[in-house]
Design a protein around this nucleic acid. Sequence first.
RNA 1: GGGGCCGUAGCUCAAUUGGUUAGAGUACCGGACUGUCGAUCCGGUGGUUGCGGGUUCGAGUCCCGUCGGCCUCGCCA
Length: 588
Amino acid sequence: MLRTHTCGQLRSSHVGEEVTLCGWVDTYRDHSGVLFVDLRDRYGKTQVCFGPEGGSKTQELARTLRSEFVVKVTGKVAQRPEGTTNPKLATGEIEVRPTELVVLNRSETPPLQPAGMDTPGEDLRLRYRYLDLRRAAMQQTLFLRHRMIKIMRDYFDENDFVDVETPVLGRSTPEGARDYLVPSRVHEAAFYALPQSPQLYKQILMVAGYDRYVQVARCFRDEDLRADRQPEFTQLDLEMSFVDADDVIAMIDGLMVRLVKELRGIDLPTPLPRMTYDEAMERFGHDAPDLRFGMEIVDIGALAAEADFRVFSEAAQSGKRVRGINAKGAADRYSRKAIDELTDFVKQDFGAGGLVWFKVDTDGKLASPTAKLFQDELLVRIGAAMEAEPGDFLMFVADEFEVTCKALYGLRRRLCAELELYDPRELNFSWVVEFPMFAHDDETGGWTAMHHPFTAPRVQDLELLANNPAACRAQAYDLVVSGFEAGGGTVRIHDRAVQSQVFEMLGIDADTAKERFGFLLEALQFGAPPHAGIALGVDRLVMLFGGLDNIRDCIAFPKTQRATDLMTGAPGSVDPRQLRDLRIKTVK
RNA sequence: GGGGCCGUAGCUCAAUUGGUUAGAGUACCGGACUGUCGAUCCGGUGGUUGCGGGUUCGAGUCCCGUCGGCCUCGCCA
């Protein structure tokens, strides 16, 4: 070992000891007679004081040090003189007075300054990720990530889970996200697919009797990126046998309690609250509602039906929905121009016909250019339904249910950010349960699995499977943390007859089913226990616990929005010989 | 594939309605300084305003295209 201590370790109790530290030059302050260098490693910073007593040669060398040089210093730990301690540093009581300085490596002037106070542009940070990762904020996040995964592994180990690794090279299965494909050299025109999740393998492990499986698994989905979505991401994946949905939920409740306790020092009450999917869509327009603030959606369809204003009455009478939200006290925060932008927002992004809005004036009356098209008494009743008070800002969308959900969810999310209605570090946990089994497939006009094709319907909904699939609810549950889907799982079908029925609904015929995942269906015939599981998004949990607003900051080497790695240049071209081996020809 | 924001010194940003030689802080280089800790003080280097066209007497600023980063809709069982 080149060093005796780390840069975060020394205290007054070490005064007088001879120590050797290694680290990077964080900052330096040259006072001619004496010069100071803050030496940094992942443990902290220690001030090194080059005074005349250390020798002029050492001092001259120290004078050449610049940002991010890597050095080794040997010297005595000294108490700092009265009045020169630094309470901002854990090591601020002491300093090291070196008698020897070795420059282990110099550094070019870094394009971004790890010790700087400005956050560099993200493209630079990704291009020079090794410098970015030296920044304290990034180190804190990666340490948080480490601690979180450690807690998870300990927790599941204590609960008799077995960590089993599953293949990365698998086979492509239908539905779901677009696969990342890996061509086979040995088999012409055949491809492996990288796993979107270890779903099928973990079910097979249940058939194999492993009873409780867990894995921190890398997953891949070739879809467009978002602030909370990366093409490769990490799931805490688990599966349990002889359990129902409540057992899985309780197990995860316990994990959340542990995480919140150990990472935040807070006792999280359980059971975590639950809401059905239908309720979530009615109250918040989304299946992962942020419950840290109100602004719930209110349906005013019954009132709208009576309106002289035809956008409302015709919508209400034709089976569409008229719903709105109330941004409390926000009336003076939105000018006409800002409201025009909100209107464009709901039209452009969600296909809404428009936005009907009112500001509540000091008399409690609803005011807007549209207001004159309404009967006065109806406006009073609408105001009452919205619990409107002077200064409130009301917004309404009249459209198909799905459109009103998307538009009002979008508005709610946008306004809560603009109005700062919540503490970004606050964590709120809940479950959304009883998801629909099926969703309409716009392309084929048929049905598609809301979760995946192995999801079990609720027992009481079995007969709805065939005659009213839209009403059929699944034994599915999503963990929602502060408005993000932090995880989702289901009880799986272990009954061959039910499985066949679901495949039929999804338009997967027997041959296709056998071809695509016959291995699972076959396995289920050899004594499959009832089983259920869940997968949590590790990157997202780190983001939420870290109070961050994007997932890239939680990943050491993330991809850009266009799925490239600015540091390595991936994806890149390959040697023609590699393509020849794979018998792959690119076309333009 | 669609919509939006951004791109100016190594870095973070500014530059009035399109108008003089594109500025500041920091970094970097040189100098001063024995207690600083975002050190301070003095001096200096540093610019194809992402790139390519266009409009104009004149473009960092306006228009078109393009490249890159971010946000978002679609997409994400």
